[in-house]
């Protein structure tokens, strides 16, 4: 276990030193602030809490940005070290391969968590400074949003490792990572929408739709956050889905955790079979 901690420490130091943490945090803070400050303009005084609007904006931002950042961090975690030749030396030490995956995951998870908490925290701070009255429920929803953003990021870090452990070189890993991102973030929902329109509700039952939504981690994230309160779901246009979806928040979160655990496990298995 301690080998994993040593490796995690190295990953964190590396990420701090090559300004990866700074870049990710800066990017998230900048976009979150922009969305918060601009995004609260159109609501005027219609009675929707500004924080609820911000949650909707930030959640939509998360779905695009967080998986991208996660995949950027993770896609060459294994293939890159194999390609450069540093992996052979690392594995010649008393280190199990699962320590390598576990250590890297812990380190990268922390990097991502810092980026999300600081980045989105800045937005929350801005709202607080601007002096809006915000009900307690909305803060809870905000906290859920930040927490699940991190979970979503971990899903894509795990998927990134799976890609990285499976391919021969970093360029293939990068291409596969972009493919993953496009698939889960853009193509999947468009395809699903297309199917729904074409099907006209004849064969696709609500249960099937739920299952299909759970099969995409970014939709799970959407279900958790864009349905987290009546205000939010109304504003996100997710009210319809929210009513239909039978899954409770805890089930949705376990699904996300499953989306982290299974790819991570598969990545470890693939990595253990790899030869250097």
């Amino acid at each position: 276990m301690s080998a994993a901690i040593v490796i995690a420490g190295r990953e964190i130091r590396d990420s701090l030193r090559n300004r990866r943490v700074l870049a990710a945090t800066g990017l998230m803070a900048a976009l979150a602030l922009t969305l918060t400050l601009l995004g609260s303009a159109p609501t005027g005084t219609v009675g929707v809490s500004k924080l609820s609007v911000t949650i909707v904006s930030l959640a939509s931002l998360t779905i695009f940005l967080v998986p991208l950042i996660a995949l950027l961090i993770a896609h060459d975690a294994i293939s890159g070290e194999m390609e450069r030749g540093t992996m052979a030396l690392l594995l010649a030490h008393p280190v199990r391969r699962i320590d390598v995956i576990g250590g890297k995951f812990a380190g990268h998870a922390l990097v991502l968590a810092i980026a999300a908490i600081v980045g989105y925290g800045t937005a929350a701070l801005a709202l607080a400074v601007l002096g809006d009255e915000v009900e307690i429920g909305a803060w809870a929803a905000f906290a859920t949003m930040v927490g699940t953003s991190i979970l979503l990021g971990l899903v894509f870090i795990a998927l990134g490792y799976l890609v990285s452990a499976s391919v021969r070189d970093s360029r293939t890993a990068a291409a596969a990572a972009i493919g993953l991102w496009l698939f889960f973030v853009l193509i999947y929902d468009m395809a699903l929408l297309g199917v729904l329109v074409a099907d006209q509700g004849r064969t696709l039952t609500p249960a099937a739709l739920n299952a299909l939504l759970l099969a995409n981690p970014s939709d799970v994230f959407r279900l958790i956050n864009l349905t987290s309160g009546p205000d939010v779901s109304l504003y996100a246009g997710m009210a319809g889905v929210a009513h239909r979806s039978g899954a409770s928040a805890s089930i949705l979160i376990s699904v996300l955790v499953g989306w982290i655990a299974i790819p991570l496990l598969l990545a470890s298995l693939v990595f253990m079979r790899r030869e250097l």
Binding site: R10, R13, D14, R84, G85, T86, L89
Partner: peptide, 9 residues
Amino acid sequence: PENVVFPPA
């Protein structure tokens, strides 16, 4: 290793 490489940072 042959042609040893280290993490650069």
